Simulated scan of single mutants.
Amino acid sequence: MNDWSGYLLLILKGAQTTVELTVMGTALALVMAFMAGLGRLSRFVVVRSLATSYIEFFRGTSVFVQLFWAYFVLPMVGFTLTPLQAGVLALGLNVGAYGAEVVRGAVVAIGEEQRNACIALNLSRYQRMRHVILPQALPLMLPTFGNNAIELLKGTAVVSLISLGDMTFQAQVVRSQTGNTLIPFATILALYFAMACLIGFGMRKLERRMSLGLDGMRR
Rank of each mutant, 00 (worst) to 15 (best):
Leu67Val: 04
Gly165Asp: 09
Ser62Arg: 00
Glu207Thr: 11
Ala194Gln: 07
Thr181Pro: 01
Tyr192Ser: 12
Val63Pro: 00
Asn147Glu: 08
Val173Ile: 13
Leu191Glu: 09
Asn180Gly: 01
Gly111Ile: 02
Leu206Tyr: 02
Met32Gln: 02
Leu123Lys: 04
Val65Asn: 04
Tyr126Arg: 13
Pro139Asn: 12
Val19Phe: 15
Leu121Cys: 08
Phe169Leu: 10
Ile119Trp: 06
Leu9Gln: 14
Gly146Phe: 07
Gly6Tyr: 14
Ile188Glu: 07
Ala149Gly: 07
Ala190Gln: 08
Thr22Met: 10
Gly165Pro: 14
Leu67Glu: 06
Ala157Cys: 12
Gln127Leu: 12
Val132Arg: 01
Ala171Asn: 04
Ile150Asn: 05
Thr26Phe: 06
Lys13Arg: 14
Ala120Gln: 03
Thr61Asp: 01
Leu182Arg: 04
Leu121Asn: 03
Gly60Asp: 10
Ala117Ile: 04
Val63Arg: 00
Val159Cys: 02
Ser42Leu: 10
Pro75Val: 06
Leu89Lys: 02
Phe58Asp: 02
Arg40Leu: 04
Val23Asn: 09
Thr26Trp: 05
Pro139Phe: 12
Glu113Ile: 06
Met35Phe: 12
Gly105Arg: 01
Ala157Ile: 10
Val77Ile: 15
Phe57Met: 11
Thr178Arg: 06
Tyr192Phe: 15
Ala100Phe: 08
Ile55His: 02
Trp69Gly: 01
His131Met: 09
Met203Pro: 00
Leu21Asn: 06
Phe79Asn: 02
Val95Lys: 00
His131Pro: 00
Tyr126Asp: 09
Leu30Trp: 09
Arg104Phe: 11
Thr187Ile: 11
Gly155Asn: 14
Pro135Arg: 03
Ala117Lys: 03
Leu191Arg: 06
Met195Asp: 10
Phe68Met: 14
Phe64Trp: 03
Ala86His: 14
Leu21Trp: 09
Met167Asp: 12
His131Leu: 13
Arg48Ser: 08
Val31Met: 14
Gly99Met: 14
Cys197Asp: 13
Ala97Thr: 08
Thr181Gly: 00
Ser42Lys: 07
Phe201His: 05
Phe57Gln: 08
Ser124Lys: 03
Tyr54Trp: 11
Lys154Ala: 09
Glu20Trp: 09
Val46Asn: 03
Ile110Cys: 05
Ala194Glu: 10
Thr181Leu: 14
His131Ser: 12
Ala27Val: 15
Lys13Pro: 01
Leu67Ile: 10
Pro83Cys: 13
Ala15Tyr: 12
Ser42Glu: 11
Phe169Lys: 10
Trp4Ser: 05
Asn122His: 03
Val102Gln: 08
Glu56Ala: 11
Thr82Gln: 13
Ser49Phe: 14
Ala171Gly: 09
Lys205Trp: 13
Phe57Glu: 07
Gly96Gln: 12
Ser62Gln: 01
Val103Lys: 02
Gly37Met: 04
Leu10Pro: 00
His131Asp: 11
Thr156Gln: 00
Arg130Asn: 15
Met24Tyr: 15
Ile199Met: 05
Leu134Ala: 02
Gln66Ile: 12
Tyr192Gln: 12
Phe72Ala: 05
Ala186Asn: 05
Ala29Cys: 11
Gly60Ala: 05
Ala171Gln: 07
Ile162Glu: 02
